[in-house]
Amino acid sequence: MALHRPHRWLALLVGLVVSTATAAFTLEEYTFDDPAREAAFRELIGQTRCLVCQNESLAASQAGLAQDLRDEIYRLMQEGRSREEVVEFLVERYGDFVLYEPPLKLSTLPLWIGPLLLAVVGVIVLRRALLNKQRDPEENLSPEEEARLKRLLARTRDPQDSE
């Protein structure tokens, strides 16, 4: 069992190296004269979703459809279309789902403000709980416990004092 382990790690390592190599390889065919346009292309295919393997971007996916869409986006950008125009082209055909970042509209409002809303509610609840504690610190102590607490606190304030 223990003997097999290094082999497994080696296999994993080889697998990782090979898979990243092929992923990088498929993108090298897209060359641009204008570096800014190339950067825009690479950014866009990183932010659009492959609809076949939905957790992969168009840049990362090896699916045939992703290849077609990369080619199409490349063609459109080579023609001089702007990022907005290409995004519009994709959304017209595949819907907002093709974008990793959904556009802000009524149906996506909960996505955008939901987390903020939860955070605000959380802060309000926390604040109230803390204020309550401050106002009424140890409400559940019995008189004996309270006396003991006072004794202990007094001791920490003045370490030289013995009990």
């Binding site: 609809l51 459809l65 077609d68 199409e72 055909r93 595949y94 819907g95």
Partner: peptide, 13 residues
């Protein structure tokens, strides 16, 4: 064969 029209139809599978 080249997904020219499929793309316009938003075909993904």
């Amino acid at each position: 064969p080249d997904n020219d029209v499929g793309l316009d139809f938003g075909v993904y599978g």
